[in-house]
Amino acid sequence: MDQAKGQRLILTAPDIVLLTLLLVTTIALARLRNLVAVIMLLGLYSLLMAVLWVSFDAVDVAFTEAAVGAGVTTILMLAAVALIGREEKPHRHNPLGPLLIVVATGAALIYATAEMPRFGDPDAPAQQHVAPRYIEDGPRETGVPNMVTAVLASYRGYDTLGEITVIFTAGIAVMLLIGARRRKREGDQ
């Protein structure tokens, strides 16, 4: 990656367009009441988000967004909607309180970003700590061509194994719950 691209400070024109499209999608999401339409728009949101990651040079994050955000999550939420019905019930409580909390949290987060290093700053702590070692010795030490995979599957192998165990257990639990429900319904008929 060349220096000029890595050190850019402002958003490029495609980023701004993508962020605008994301905003439109979010507003539409908040207003829709049909849950199937909401899930499809969420898939579209992931689609836009992945392009934004590509534009930020974070291809591996974009891969995860594509596979998990647009793929697995869509299917899981559809399965959930199949069980609970397709229309959202009208709100009975006042939305002002939650809105206040969300705005306050958002403001705090934006305030916190002022302390973060610049986007793509080569002097940032994250670039200075262990990253140079991974970049220089990773291919030789692990034999894995993709750097992110080398870190996840080799340098942090035990960490990843733990994560996978958790997700696997959760997946089995969900399948047991849904499967039990289906068998019961078949017994009724």
Partner: peptide
């Protein structure tokens, strides 16, 4: 990534 997307888009559409 394009390849992954071409597939996921199709699977998502069919599932919906």
């Amino acid at each position: 990534l394009s390849l992954v997307y071409a597939l996921i888009n199709f699977i998502g559409t069919i599932a919906v």
